[in-house]
Amino acid sequence: MRLLSILTTAGALCFGLLWSSAPAAPASSSSPFRSSTSVDTVETKRLRLLMVGLAQDMDRISTGLWHEDYDLMQQGAAAIARHPKIPPEQMKKIKAALENEFQAFVQYDKTVHKTAAELAEAASNENLSRVLDAHTRLRNGCMGCHTAYRDRLRPVLTP
Rank of each mutant, 00 (worst) to 15 (best):
L47R: 00
P88A: 15
S20Y: 04
H83V: 13
E118I: 02
V131F: 02
C14T: 15
G64T: 06
D71Q: 01
K85N: 14
D57C: 06
N100T: 12
V42H: 06
H67K: 14
V156T: 11
D57G: 04
N125M: 02
K45D: 14
N100E: 12
L65Q: 05
R139L: 14
Q103E: 10
A77G: 02
Y149S: 07
A96K: 11
I61S: 03
I80C: 09
T147A: 06
D133I: 14
H113R: 11
T41F: 04
A96Y: 03
N125I: 03
S129K: 09
S28P: 08
P23E: 14
P87W: 08
A12D: 10
K92R: 13
P88K: 10
A148S: 10
R139V: 06
L7Y: 07
T158W: 02
K95A: 11
E101G: 06
T111L: 07
A104D: 03
L50M: 12
P84D: 11
A81E: 13
L7Q: 04
S62H: 00
R152V: 12
W66F: 00
R48A: 11
A79W: 10
I61M: 09
S31R: 01
A120D: 01
S129F: 04
R139S: 06
A120L: 00
V106T: 12
L128T: 03
L72N: 00
A25I: 05
R34A: 13
S20R: 12
M143Y: 10
A116Q: 03
T115F: 07
A55F: 01
G64S: 00
T9G: 12
W19V: 13
G76R: 08
L54S: 10
A134M: 02
Y108N: 11
M51V: 13
G64D: 04
R60N: 05
L3H: 12
R60V: 10
C145E: 03
C14M: 09
A12Q: 09
S62R: 11
A117C: 00
N127R: 15
M1D: 05
H146W: 07
A117S: 12
P23I: 08
V39Q: 14
M73F: 00
A27V: 07
A117P: 02
F102L: 09
L54A: 08
K110V: 10
D69T: 11
